[in-house]
Design a binder for these strands. Sequence first.
DNA 1: CCGCCGCGGTTACAGTCCGTTACAAAGTTT
DNA 2: AAACTTTGTAACGGACTGTAACCGCGGCGG
Lengths: 244, 244
Amino acid sequence: MESLGHVLVVDDDREIRDLLGRFLTKHGYRVTAVPDGKEMRRAIADWRIDLVVLDLMLPGEDGLSLCRDLRAKSQVPVIMLTMMGEETDRIIGLEMGADDYLPKPFNPRELLARMKAVLRRAQCAPAVPVTARRTVLHFAGWKLDIGLRRLESPQGLIVDLSAGEFDLLVAFVEHPERVLNRDQLLDLTHGRAEAPFDRSIDMQISRLRRKIEADHTQPKLIKTVRGGGYILTEVVTQDETLDT
Amino acid sequence: MESLGHVLVVDDDREIRDLLGRFLTKHGYRVTAVPDGKEMRRAIADWRIDLVVLDLMLPGEDGLSLCRDLRAKSQVPVIMLTMMGEETDRIIGLEMGADDYLPKPFNPRELLARMKAVLRRAQCAPAVPVTARRTVLHFAGWKLDIGLRRLESPQGLIVDLSAGEFDLLVAFVEHPERVLNRDQLLDLTHGRAEAPFDRSIDMQISRLRRKIEADHTQPKLIKTVRGGGYILTEVVTQDETLDT
DNA sequence: CCGCCGCGGTTACAGTCCGTTACAAAGTTT
DNA sequence: AAACTTTGTAACGGACTGTAACCGCGGCGG
């Protein structure tokens, strides 16, 4: 089934993670569930995330600052889970920029409804102008900051690429709508010199897809050409150098 | 005998599979019986299915989510089998979109009657407008999504084709009402270049027929011309590019 | 009538390609 | 030095596809 979005659940309670994982998966979402803020950052760096469900109370870093953190860097929608009746309820509305919040214990269907609403609202969010003074590549709604090897998703999420992933992506962007086989890709990324065993390209492709494809099992951007290689499709590239 | 339809029975109980298999076969249906959801998907991908009889309780993936899955993707009629008196009864009416359900243990004749009713209703289902923004080919009630290599049957069932099956079908659609021999088909699908032993076309034809013919033992669409090749018949093709 | 043969449908199987997870090695940061 | 990141390699599994083999059918000559 076409996924409704990739949800990142952040909660230290393992049972809740499992429960929500199963429930949301059953309802058509892809789910990654992690226990703390550190894992959260890791997941965000490794996957394309459409929505974050964040527990307020976490060991170590608390959910509130994590939320503010997300807000500062991106526009990923966030739904906070809070303890019933806590005073935080009021604080939440005022202080932090969660898109919605839900007191525990909650009915999973309630969460589902809120998620739908939040995601719908997020669709209509206006595009954010790039403020950095830097060379930027636009393609398919993404912004690729060349200096920082940093991607900004259409949802505004910041994704850092490793050197290898970045080189690969650049190779594709510089040869749009062309099928590139593994040798060509090795040339373009490693400069022909070394010829490691192989399958290394496949790995980088896999890792890159996880970061930029909404559904890496049905890639829309980087497509596989069986027996041929890979191709970056449906892309309108556009260079830009900003000086503001 | 002309088959009344291809029924897919999904039940983990082997005895029930055998029983229903024999019973329904005796009454003029073609039957495929499988034990779990995985096999179900496989069968749906491999055969043209007219009706699914689905047990609610299955090991692993439960029938409920499988049912919703089917609903989401297609309009294949589904009849659910449930345990008598279980709480599921209530859920069923509300949650899942089965066309009918039957409490176990049931009288096979009862099932037969429901099947007839459900199939009759399904016949009159209105055509669904294609909403995707994509090039679509219509022929003989089928819709062929070229970008996704995906077929939608007149009943709305989604069938994914492999690259080879897709190429073959396109070859036929592009040469309607023409007998194509195996060499021509090899040209059209493999680009003349390679000439594998042979019989490969026969295999692809066989696989394709299983997916798109109501009764692959008496093909209505792709007919065999003994000594000549194959022909796609009774087809009104019609291109379409949607932009809504 | 009977056996042989060509033809085609289907099953079974093997080979290939690819996606992904896990892990190890190397480099980097703290 | 310890912790972490990056990246290549191995390995498992699934999807696809060509080849072989078996079967059935119909024609044909004996």
